[in-house]
């Protein structure tokens, strides 16, 4: 009880610093509301009861190209959306910066690359990206059906832009989701992401 009060007091102190609690593994993933590429407003809370994957993306970033050019990202999207996992690709590139696209262009990219996300979401002002402390593209998150953040970090274990490394690497999203779907805990919950910096609004 005393510990709880301590934490409450601590969080009260920090409250003015962070208007909303930031994302942290093993705690509730903060809710957000964003427009998708079809103009529909999508909230994280819409998907309560399902596993949700968040993928920060920027189609011109070489590290994203590594995973799309090799069909690695799309096959993950297909594989898991078939298992009723919700896959949200989020673009936090600010207007005028690399990776910022119109809704139409986003849909074209999805089609051209045979991608299969549940939604492509736009976060021009970078609020959701900052909320999740997303730093790079790609930066991956897994949220469990109870709304808790189960994984945050890199897509795989080899930090490079070379597509040849994909097969040699351990894919953390696959490992995490497979464990969760099998009712097991995630072994690696937090890793340092790698890639291009997200082109946030300055």
């Amino acid at each position: 009880m005393q510990r709880l009060t301590k934490w409450l007091m601590l969080s009260m102190l920090f409250a003015p610093l962070l208007s909303i609690a930031a994302a942290k593994v093993d705690t509730s993933a903060p809710d957000f509301k964003l427009q998708d590429s079809f103009g529909k407003t999508v909230s994280l809370s819409d998907f309560k009861g399902k596993y949700v994957v968040l993928e920060w993306t920027n189609h011109l970033c070489p590290y994203v190209v590594k995973h799309y050019g090799s069909d690695n990202m799309q096959s993950l999207q297909r594989q898991y959306t078939q298992k009723d996992v919700v896959w949200l690709s989020i673009i936090s590139s600010a207007k005028g910066k690399q990776g910022h696209v119109s809704a139409q262009k986003a849909n074209e990219l999805t089609q051209k690359r045979s991608a299969a996300p549940s939604h492509v979401l736009f976060d021009e002002d970078g609020q959701v990206g900052r909320l999740y402390k997303a730093k790079t593209t790609p930066h991956m998150y897994i949220i469990n059906p109870q709304g808790k953040l189960s994984y945050a970090g890199a897509i795989d274990s080899i930090k490079s832009a070379n597509p040849a490394d994909i097969t040699k690497a351990t894919n953390y999203v696959t490992a995490g989701l497979n464990n969760l779907l099998a009712g097991k805990p995630v072994t690696q919950k937090l890793t340092k992401p790698y890639g291009c910096s997200i082109k946030y609004k300055s």
Partner: peptide, 14 residues
């Protein structure tokens, strides 16, 4: 040699 050169955008090279 492999490298990454960036301004805001990044380009890898080998």
């Amino acid at each position: 040699l492999s490298w990454l050169v960036c301004k805001e955008d990044c380009i890898p090279g080998w």
